[in-house]
């Protein structure tokens, strides 16, 4: 990989109650690029994704060894504030999960938590977040409506706007389109392509065509191991590992 890395994992292992869910994962996530994680169900893609913002800390009986660095800083260092980490590393989930608040308050929520009170500043952040998430034109006249009244695709873009509002460096997306119809999916994919101008995106997807369409780099995982990681073009045209070849050509999975 020639692009500079923003996240690096080195010999990362993770156990859930003794089950070895990630085995010696070493990878580099290039900055301002989209990296897709693919693999069959239960291979550890989401677990790996949730390591990057330490979301696995919230689960009991998890043991992690090895190292993960963000901007060359160990994210497990005692001095590191996990709230700051999650501000830098935002996340969008499979199912859109807007707060039961107005559209405006959803986007303003993060900045308010981080202490921004000035109305003009919040207005600016909300507009910018919604614009970056390609939602502004659709909701600018009804910012005070409930977010729950939006369509699924709009809700998912609102969640992306909410993530962007705290100015993260990295956006983690866990199956962001699996609950959406093809048109909404297409909008999110276009958005992902635009987001990499300013952010690093890591996306977990079951949909290999989606991985091929949106990502610059792809990692293939199998039974907790990262089998192969490289440029998407190479992985989908000519993978190095036979296991990757067999998975992406549908011979198992």
């Amino acid at each position: 990989m020639s692009d500079a890395a923003i996240i690096t994992t080195n010999n990362l292992n993770l156990w859930y109650s003794g089950k070895h869910a990630l085995e010696s994962v070493s990878m580099k996530v290039p900055k301002n690029r989209v990296t897709a994680l693919i693999g069959p169900s239960g291979c550890g893609k989401s677990t790996l994704l949730r390591c990057f913002n330490r979301l696995n800390d919230l689960i009991d009986n998890v043991k992690i060894t090895g190292e993960i660095t963000l901007d060359d800083e160990n994210i497990h260092a005692p001095s590191l504030d996990v709230v700051t980490l999650r501000k830098k590393v935002g996340m969008v989930f499979q199912k859109p999960n807007p707060f039961p608040k107005t559209i405006y308050d959803n986007v303003a929520y993060g900045p308010r938590v981080h202490g921004i009170r000035d109305k003009n500043e919040l207005d600016r952040i909300v507009e910018q977040g919604l614009r970056h998430a390609a939602l502004w034109d659709e909701v600018k006249d009804r910012l005070d409506d409930s977010a729950l009244g939006l369509s699924g695709g709009q809700q998912q873009r609102l969640c992306i706007a909410r993530t962007l509002a705290v100015e993260p460096e990295v956006i983690l997306m866990d199956e962001p389109c699996s609950a959406l119809d093809p048109i909404a999916t297409s909008k999110i994919e276009n958005l992902i392509d635009m987001l990499k101008e300013d952010y690093t995106v890591i996306i977990v997807t079951h949909n290999m065509q989606q991985a091929a369409r949106v990502s610059d780099y792809t990692g293939f995982m199998y039974l907790g191991k990262l089998i192969e990681c490289g440029r998407t073009k190479q992985i989908f045209e000519h993978p190095t590992e036979e296991l990757t070849e067999n998975y992406i050509t549908g011979r198992f999975g």
Binding site: M208, Q209, A212, E237, H238, P239, T244, T249, G250
Partner: peptide
């Protein structure tokens, strides 16, 4: 089928 890898080739 959107073939990939060797299938595509």
């Amino acid at each position: 089928n959107q073939p990939m890898a060797k299938d595509m080739r």
